[in-house]
């Protein structure tokens, strides 16, 4: 009996010690983790828009996050967008509810600071508190609308879709006409040497410059990548081709389908169809949201 008690006591003490060590590590790292993720995301976004350290973004550049939620009330579903407000220098946010047919339902002012709005939990709490009881919300996705002064420059769409092995997480920049400005693979677990090549310039840059109409019909072909196109796609790497030449070649291939990676047709196809789906859905939703915002005279900074 005494041994059992000693064992229990010692196990408890070691568990408590272990818990203390892990808890301390968690507390110390969680802030840095969030900060680093945010910095990395910002960097990727600016890169996608064509800015770098040599070519910094102008101060007038504004990035406005738009969060989409699915609202459930009993059996009924509706969409809700958390939009930043521009009016009279007060800022703040509003939660705009739209039904499934695209009609305006309601508008709730949400009081939340901009930094807090980046935290998923705090955001959710703030929205729930203005919606009233009986409604639940489910986070769907986020869009970042990039403006330069009054003008809309681009949309940044983070997305996630199934790849060959597990999910592929991407960030995509599209222009106001929904043509693709750039694609960046954020996370993936495809095989190195095969599907893992989706992160290479010669694959992901193929999406650059595709117009909306091309994207709708975009497919994957298994023919080898033409040499001049390859050079143009990898121009950023070795600095071989001049900007003019690259533009010329890009123009020549801009209506072509995506050339599949050797030995990784499935990965290529999943990225292509994922990108297609993202652009198609986004263009549909932003059109509805813009119409509603205009009809209801909701002033937004984008």
């Amino acid at each position: 009996m005494k041994t059992i008690l000693t064992i229990i006591f010692r196990l408890t003490v070691s568990c408590l010690l272990a818990g203390a060590v892990m808890g301390a590590a968690f507390v110390m790292t969680s802030k840095a983790k969030k900060h680093n993720e945010h910095v990395k995301e910002q960097k990727v976004m600016l890169n996608l828009l064509g800015y770098s350290e040599k070519n910094p973004a102008p101060a007038s550049l504004g990035m406005h996050a738009l969060y989409r939620y699915i609202v459930t009330e009993g059996e009924a579903l509706s969409m809700g967008y958390l939009v930043p407000l521009a009016d009279e220098g007060r800022g703040g946010f509003a939660f705009v509810a739209i039904d499934l047919d695209g009609n305006f339902l309601a508008r709730h002012p949400v009081t939340i600071a901009e930094e807090e709005a980046r935290e998923a939990d705090a955001r959710e709490q703030a929205i729930l508190s203005v919606l009233g009881p009986g409604r639940t919300i489910r986070y769907a996705d986020q869009t970042i609308i990039v403006t330069d002064g009054e003008k809309r420059m681009a949309y940044l769409l983070p997305g996630k879709f199934p790849g060959f092995k597990t999910f592929i997480k991407v960030m995509m920049a599209v222009d106001p006409a929904y043509g693709i400005l750039g694609l960046e693979i954020m996370e993936h677990e495809e095989d190195p040497g095969l599907g893992g090549e989706i992160v290479q310039d010669y694959f992901k840059n193929q999406f650059k410059g595709k117009a909306f109409d091309t994207i709708r019909k975009l497919d994957v072909v298994k023919t080898p990548l033409p040499g001049d196109y390859l050079q143009a796609l990898e121009a950023g790497k070795r600095g071989g081709l001049g900007a003019e030449e690259v533009a010329k070649i890009q123009e020549q291939y801009k209506d072509n389908d995506i050339y599949a990676l050797t030995g990784a047709t499935i990965s290529s196809r999943s990225v292509t169809s994922g990108v297609k789906g993202m652009v198609r859905k986004f263009s549909y939703r932003i059109a509805i949201l813009d119409r509603v915002l205009a009809e209801q005279h909701i002033a937004v900074p984008f």
């Binding site: 196990l11 070691s14 590590a25 969680s30 680093n36």
Partner: peptide
């Protein structure tokens, strides 16, 4: 309880390095 203690010790330090790497070298 030798083996459980070893496992607990290792798991603790793995968790720590996992958190640190995730935070500083994503």
């Amino acid at each position: 309880i030798r083996i459980p203690t070893y496992t607990l010790t290792i798991a603790t330090w793995v968790t720590v390095i996992d958190l640190v790497l995730a935070a500083y070298l994503p």
